[in-house]
Write a protein that binds this DNA or RNA. Sequence first.
DNA 1: CTGAAAGCGCTTACAG
DNA 2: CTGAAAGCGCTTACAG
Lengths: 335, 335
Amino acid sequence: MATMRDVAERAGVSIATVSFVVNGTKRVTDATRARVEDAMRELGFRRNPVGAALANGRTRIIALLFPTLERTLSHTAVAFFTSAARRARERGYDLILWPIGSDIEHIDVLARGGLVDGVILMEVKLDDPRVAALAVNHVPFAMIGRTADPSGVPYVDIDMATSAREAYERLAALGHRDIAYVYSEGVQYDHGADARSRQAYREAAAAHGRPATLIPCAEHPTAGRELGERFAAEHPDATAVILLNEHAAPGLLAGLAQAGVRVPQDLSVLSLGSSAYMASMTDPPLSYLRTPGPELGELGFDAVLQRLTAPDEAPMQALLPCEYVPGDTMAAPRG
Amino acid sequence: MATMRDVAERAGVSIATVSFVVNGTKRVTDATRARVEDAMRELGFRRNPVGAALANGRTRIIALLFPTLERTLSHTAVAFFTSAARRARERGYDLILWPIGSDIEHIDVLARGGLVDGVILMEVKLDDPRVAALAVNHVPFAMIGRTADPSGVPYVDIDMATSAREAYERLAALGHRDIAYVYSEGVQYDHGADARSRQAYREAAAAHGRPATLIPCAEHPTAGRELGERFAAEHPDATAVILLNEHAAPGLLAGLAQAGVRVPQDLSVLSLGSSAYMASMTDPPLSYLRTPGPELGELGFDAVLQRLTAPDEAPMQALLPCEYVPGDTMAAPRG
DNA sequence: CTGAAAGCGCTTACAG
DNA sequence: CTGAAAGCGCTTACAG
């Protein structure tokens, strides 16, 4: 483990000069640079990022916080991470996934200690204690999602209210009058996306003078299957379902088929916030409102990066729509 | 951002004493400890892990390397990570997911620089350059998976050869004679688990005096669906399929149904290396050989930890079997 | 039981 | 263009 001192000695220069060469941070004559580079190669030198971090307070590492231990990481959620990681790489940063939940103590040891330059929060709640903790400690961060009042805080989020309304209106336009809503059981009530779309569903139903039918379902295909099998018995009037639980989707359709409910002839299903991958997991393939996962991942990274490079600019605040992708699970209600 | 120096001043002690209190690393009188703890509380002190890491060479962070940018992170793969993270937490460590592939340069900057204490490799190839790079640099690591010759290197792996053989034998015992094998297209040919099970399939077929039928399929439900739809036409003799591509499974069954192939009456399907979650995504639910994901995640962490705490002990080398879980996709061949 | 001091591997004004 | 030196925030023998 050669250090800069070793390289400096071998090259006959000061360690400052080695640092300049390594980081390209100051002009160095070609001859000197060549000597230093030879020495580095001969010794197999690699800069120790911990030393660098302590000296200049930067690691070029951004952490994405996702509570994997509390919430299942869906394929769609993985897309956020992957696209953010790709963008980070393009910008010369590293993105890591840190599986911590709301353990604030833990969070700011990591973040404020300088191990990472910034943080991206996922699974943001309406009232999220992590936001205050990070802000107080001056840790640069951005949210993918947003709190109830995100003023002044950088975020990129899905416009769930609009999307939920769109889902309702699309089904209503086909002639559906009894539209139920299946959500993820076990998701905290104040989970941002969940709460907002539930609320929008309620309002849309009210606007149409219809009751709201909220049906919980665990985030697992087996739970979906069970729901599908008993659905017709429990909700005989419903002709359409808005689904905000992609883990349950394949099971739900299988269970419905099992119980003799034909999709879409007897029941339309519209998945709210899904991806091509998950939508094509079901039979028939789902009609869905596509989560702009890759876009949000990239923007999320850009949003933290902006905090680092241009802290005086107004924070990025972006709300992206879901895009409707037709599948084979929507039709007009029967006669 | 109060430092230890600040705390020491306020408490009227030396920073050494503060360090002893923070880390519980030396006996301190109750009175002194109380003064230090008060000062820490008043100043909102948190130990800076970068300073600590530079001084003692440890961060209590382990990185799991998974090439998310090159390979889709399946739900089953996420289970490895989650269980390793949970175990890490139990042991007072943090586990992070670092999405880097075979970029060796990158790897040892991170690992050897002391940012992390150790590394867990996933997606190990038969001849994997990362192994040599880490070994040369004395980075403690363990593999989940293994190279062609893993002697002396710590690993935990699935016994894919035995599992693939078991898959074949189970189908053969039901009376199947034409058993095809569907693998993940795009997975490098020397991916350990993939190569080993493919080879075992070939050998099992040969032992039964039957030809080997290897069918590639991309890791996506849509690819599975297309394969399902054309399967009967292209492989009219096959009465059973061993599947090592869980992304394609739901689509494959949907495509088969679409083409009028009944599972399991016309075709048996046995998924090799899957989880309850993925198996219940399909209709009907898959029969499968269960990947011991949670077990491997935990053991993988233990294997690196052992390198840190007992470097002189023989490295852990464990091979875990898959367990057969009956579903609804296996039956005797018709006629 | 507690403290003074060296050191971990870098970066970065400040001189020259 | 290059170097000497202070400093980033800790830990840890070594004394006392």
